[in-house]
């Protein structure tokens, strides 16, 4: 008797009649010219699906199908049922197999829902530490991979283990301060760990330093605004912060109405100006807010003109 994790060998399926994988329609539309090997493999897959055999050889077949066609979600589902039936005490091996498939298919997302299904349904004894190596490696290779980040959030919440997250995003933001996925994950972390006032203030300082490093970065500005909106909604963004933002646009006089792009100076950050505009609007300094939006529309971010003009109309309302 062979094992679930042995190599795939066609001879083990000699007794199974493959089912057709084409519709049999004459001149079928968008018919793919499958290789003979693919036809045979998928034909076997269909035969197994219809008999619903939950055996080691069925499991080996799914591994082969997934290696050839990782987006074939039906095989992932079938494999899940087999694991539940005959291999749920061998999760270590299943994750080893899955890690290899993951590394070979960085853009695939069946992998992550499969992983989630394993952890959720069978992984009573697992911890986040088991998931960290593969997640770290995948994100090291593709730092904005949406599926990995999304799975990571799910796993962190599932295991209620936030201990690795801050140092991990620190590293990624140091590597690429424009990585919006990393900034977003930082917000996910902050919102979940209920930080005290001192931590929030340190976080604000951290973000300001990153903005000083690169003032024209929407990710760090959004994060800064997000921190205030979520953790300090009552204080507004007054005083020191207005001064901080003002430092990036100091050549610009917001008390004067601009009439052409040519007359406007260079500034260091359009996002600083956007931030100031919204703060002035909140504080009731409507003329300055309006001037700021006009400058954005004229020169600093003109492609968003319709949005800036809309903001001006809300001031006049």
């Amino acid at each position: 008797m062979t094992d679930c994790y042995d190599e795939f060998n066609l001879e083990d399926y000699a007794d199974v009649e493959p089912l057709p994988i084409v519709t049999g329609l004459k001149d079928e539309l968008c018919q793919i010219m499958y290789s003979e090997e693919y036809k045979q493999l998928m034909g076997l897959m269909r035969a197994f699906l219809s008999s619903n055999e939950l055996t080691p050889r069925a499991m080996r077949l799914t591994a082969r199908v997934i290696a050839v066609a990782p987006a074939f979600y039906t095989a992932w589902n079938y494999r899940f049922n087999i694991v539940v039936a005959i291999a749920k005490d061998r999760l270590d091996q299943e994750f080893q197999w899955l890690d290899e498939v993951t590394l070979n298919n960085p853009k695939n997302y069946q992998i992550w829902s499969y992983r989630q299904a394993l952890v959720e349904n069978l992984g009573q004894d697992l911890t986040l530490r088991g998931d960290l190596p593969i997640m770290d490696m995948m994100l090291d290779d593709d730092t904005k991979n949406y599926h990995v980040w999304s799975y990571r959030k799910w796993a962190v919440l599932h295991f209620k283990d936030f201990t690795h997250e801050l140092s991990f995003v620190d590293k990624l933001i140091d590597r690429d301060v424009y990585n919006n996925s990393a900034w977003n994950h930082r917000m996910f972390y902050m919102k979940n760990v209920s930080p005290d006032d001192r931590t929030i203030d340190e976080e604000i300082t951290y973000t300001k330093n990153k903005i000083e490093l690169v003032p024209q970065n929407i990710s760090s500005w959004n994060y800064l605004r997000g921190l205030y909106d979520h953790f300090k909604p009552e204080t507004g963004h007054k005083g020191e912060l207005l001064k901080f933002a003002g430092g990036f646009i100091d050549a610009l006089d917001l008390n004067a109405t601009a009439d052409s792009a040519e007359s406007l100076p260079e500034i260091e950050s359009s996002y600083a100006l956007e931030f100031l505009a919204s703060e002035y609007a909140t504080e009731g300094q409507l003329q300055r807010a309006k001037n700021a939006y006009q400058c954005l529309a004229l020169k600093y971010d003109p492609i968003r003109g319709s949005f800036w003009n809309y903001k001006i109309t809300t001031l006049e309302a």
Binding site: L29, C30, Q31, I32, M33, Y34, S35, Y38, M42, A69, A71, F72, Y73, T74
Partner: peptide, 25 residues
């Protein structure tokens, strides 16, 4: 062209997305 003849083997990657191909075309 896509409708006129079978798709080349490299399109096997879309084997689990056949209704999508029809809709897109």
């Amino acid at each position: 062209y896509v409708l006129a003849q079978p798709l080349p083997p490299q399109m096997t990657a879309l084997d689990a997305s056949q209704p999508w191909m029809l809709y897109w075309v």
